[in-house]
C-alpha cells in the first residue's frame, strides 16, 4: 500500500540480498523481514484463481449469505418454468416438448438480462471502486490475463445460468420417452446457442460495467444496452409485421444482441425464431448477423483490453 519500494526489488539490482537484520546499502528503509524464496505458483495459477473466484462470485459462493440471495432466486426463476414444462410434458404424454431448447432460453431473456446486469458490475466495478485493480497488476498477471479471466468467468456463469434449464428440459424429454436421437441433437444445438449467447452478452455486460465504479449505475446501463433494445426491436418488428412489411423484420433484428442470437439460431441451429412472421433470414442477412456477433465479441474484448491499460478510471 505504501509508496516505498519493496526492499527486494531495489536490492536485487545491485547487491545480493543482505542477511536478515542487516541493512542493505542502497535501501532507504529495511526492518529486517526475510524474503520469501520458496516456490512460486506463477502466472497461470493466478489466472485460474481469478477465473475461479470470479465464477464462484457470480453465484455468491464464498461470499456472504446476503449476496447469495439474488443469484439463487434468479437461477430458480430461470429453472422452475423448465421443470413445469417437463412435468406437463410427462403428465400429458406429449409427443414433443411444448417449447424447444433454443426458444426457451431466448424467451427468458428479461431474467437473464437482470442476472447479467446484477453480476457483471459485481465482477469488475467493485475492483475499480475499492481500487484493488493496481494490486492485481502488481502480481505476475498481465492485463490480458485479468481481462481474459473475467471475460471467461462471466461467460461461464451465464452459460451455466442458461444451460441449466436446457439440461432440465433434456432430461425431462428423455424421461417422457421422446426420441433419443432427435432430443440429443436439439440438446447439443441448444448448448451451442447458449454458448454464443453467453459469449456475446458477457462481453457487452463487462464492457459497460468496466466503465463505471458505481454498481447501481452499471446495472441500469447494462439493462439499457441489453434489454431495452431487445424490447424495442420486438415492438418495431411487431409494427412492421402489422404493416405487412415483412422484408424489414430480418434487418431490424440486427438492432439488439438478443435478436441477433435469435436470428442466428433460427438460421444455423435448427431453431424457430421469435420474430413475428417466423420467417427465416436470407443468406445475406444471416452472414451479416454472424459478422456482427463476431465483431461485437472481438470488439468488446478489445475495448476491455484498452480499458485496463490504465488501472484507475
Amino acid at each position: 500500500m505504501s509508496p516505498e519500494p519493496h526492499p527486494t526489488t531495489s536490492m536485487s539490482k545491485t547487491a545480493p540480498p543482505a542477511p536478515p537484520g542487516q541493512r542493505g546499502e542502497d535501501v532507504i528503509h529495511n526492518i529486517g523481514y526475510r524474503n520469501y524464496d520458496g516456490p512460486r505458483l506463477g502466472r497461470g495459477y493466478a489466472r485460474t484463481s481469478l477465473f475461479d473466484q470470479s465464477l464462484r462470485g457470480a453465484y455468491g459462493l464464498g461470499r456472504s449469505a446476503k449476496s447469495k440471495v439474488l443469484p439463487m432466486i434468479l437461477f430458480a426463476v430461470m429453472c422452475v418454468p423448465a421443470a413445469i414444462v417437463v412435468a406437463v410434458a410427462i403428465f400429458t404424454e406429449a409427443k414433443q416438448m411444448p417449447v424447444d431448447y433454443n426458444s426457451y432460453v431466448l424467451r427468458m431473456q428479461p431474467v437473464i438480462g437482470i442476472y447479467i446486469a446484477a453480476m457483471a458490475p459485481q465482477a469488475v466495478s467493485l475492483d475499480l471502486r475499492f481500487r484493488v485493480v493496481p494490486l492485481y497488476f502488481s502480481r505476475p498477471i498481465e492485463r490480458s490475463d485479468y481481462v481474459g479471466a473475467k471475460y471467461a468467468a462471466l461467460s461461464a456463469a451465464i452459460f451455466i445460468f442458461t444451460a441449466a434449464s436446457v439440461v432440465i428440459l433434456y432430461v425431462g424429454a428423455l424421461l417422457a420417452k421422446l426420441d433419443f436421437g432427435d432430443q440429443t441433437k436439439g440438446f447439443a444445438l441448444g448448448l451451442a446457442c447458449c454458448a454464443i449467447f453467453s459469449l456475446l452478452h458477457a462481453g457487452i455486460g463487462l464492457a459497460v460495467a468496466a466503465a463505471t465504479p458505481r454498481r447501481g449505475f452499471g446495472v441500469a446501463a447494462i439493462i439499457a444496452v441489453l434489454t431495452i433494445p431487445y424490447m424495442l426491436v420486438g415492438t418495431v418488428q411487431g409494427i412492421a409485421f402489422s404493416q405487412d412489411n415483412t422484408k424489414i423484420i430480418g434487418w431490424l433484428g440486427l438492432g439488439s444482441p438478443g435478436t441477433l442470437v435469435d436470428g442466428l439460431q433460427s438460421k444455423f441451429l435448427d431453431g424457430q425464431s421469435d420474430f413475428p412472421s417466423g420467417q427465416a433470414l436470407t443468406s445475406m442477412q444471416a452472414s451479416l448477423y454472424v459478422l456482427l456477433i463476431v465483431v461485437l465479441i472481438a470488439g468488446t474484448y478489445g475495448l476491455l483490453l484498452r480499458r485496463y491499460r490504465k488501472a484507475g478510471l
Binding site: L70, V77, I114, A117, R215, G216, V219
Partner: peptide, 17 residues
C-alpha cells in the same frame, strides 16, 4: 443496497413477464 436490481425486477419481470 440492491435497489436498482430490485427495481428492475419489478419493472421488467413483474410488470412485463
Amino acid at each position: 443496497r440492491h435497489a436498482v436490481v430490485i427495481g428492475l425486477v419489478y419493472a421488467l419481470i413483474w410488470e412485463a413477464l
